[in-house]
Amino acid sequence: MSEPAPAAPAVTDAERAELRRHGMLLTSIEELCDWGRSHSVWPLQFGLACCAIEMIAASMARFDIARFGSEVFRPSPRQADLLIVSGTVTKKMAPMVVRIWNQMPEPKYCIAMGACAISGGPFKQGYNVLKGIDRFVPVDIYVPGCPPRPEALLHGLIKLQEKIRGQRLGTPAPSECPVPEYAAHDLDPTKNPQLWQPPVLVRKEGA
């Protein structure tokens, strides 16, 4: 995303806070827009595995995700702006997840919920398990746990709201991800190199 360098604000944050103390709200369209967007995140109703049950629990009475404006779980990716990857992504499932991501309208966000979605988790050794959804889809928030408690998911959501509030209006670059295909032994390609590179291992000499 190429952004023009922001002009010096006419009113500083300190002045704005001072005005707010006197009962005057001075804001910008951008801020208002981000505030609204961050409190009406519509997740996709999309469950993969164990974590999906905790995702459902987060939307039920005790944890009540509606307090954060995200109770509207949409069945269609066309109407959703948050993909919660809740569970193990297998290689057989990975093309579908990428396709669902591609069908979601911009601006869109992704939460990798649980150890499996982050890295393969306990099933990392599996021949059919994708070692982290970030190999194919850009992830905004990682929520660790196996499965994460509903509170942890809510924490991830709050972090996502903070991230949204820090964004500025503009035309985001379309983030269409290439869909992997089934091959004879593995997916083809096994990762999206633009999104994910293996971490660099720093090793002592001779180790």
Binding site: T90, K92, C116, P122, F123, Q125, G126, Y127, N128, V129
Partner: peptide, 22 residues
């Protein structure tokens, strides 16, 4: 098969107790 996470294969490489969390 969309959630085939190779439980049996992993368990054949793990100890008896190690399969309990799976």
């Amino acid at each position: 098969g969309y959630l085939h996470r190779n439980h049996e294969k992993i368990a054949e490489g793990a100890s008896y107790l190690g399969s309990m969390p799976y």
